[in-house]
Amino acid sequence: MDSIPVTRLLGELGRGDETSEKVLLDAIYRELHRLAQRAMRGERDNHTLQPSALVNEAYMRMKSQLRHEWQNRGHFYAVAARMMRQILIDHARTRNTQKRGTGQRMEALRDTDGQFSCNPEEILGIHEALQRLAVMSERQAQIVELRFFAGLSVEETAVAMEISEKTVKRDWSVARAWLAMELGKA
């Protein structure tokens, strides 16, 4: 997933002036990367990347800089999830490399309120497993993406993907089981 077609996804969003919107979103994306990098260098958060802060910032910008409404909420979520996935993966990768380079202990991603933590290897493992899953079922992979990377509920996932809740539930249970096996292997 070195090149998730974020721009393509975003391009599809456009009502109105597509070009400027794309440019804008690209700019937001770059800005987020910059933020994340800064966070990682410890200028701000002492080596702790805070996903929620990042996400918040991402969406605030995406939303406030776009003058008009997103096509629908679902579309917004889908794009957001994809963007977050890419950003987090990029960072997990960078961290992984850094770790190998310096022999330091790997930093975990940790939200300040301690709600969760996830280390880069884990994220990369999930990401790669999802890529494999996508080969077999793109829909299942996307459901996991929306739920894991964007925190959507079953209902929201159904809305975002324009499929029934029942399908989301069924696909989720299978994908979850498969991921349990895949992640257990490592």
């Binding site: 929620s52 995406m62 709600q115 990377f149 925190g151 929201e156």
Partner: peptide, 20 residues
Amino acid sequence: VRVDQPLVRGDLLRRALSEG
């Protein structure tokens, strides 16, 4: 399973959407 716990909380998105 690790994916049971989302990497980001869903209310962040909802909030972002409304703040936006």
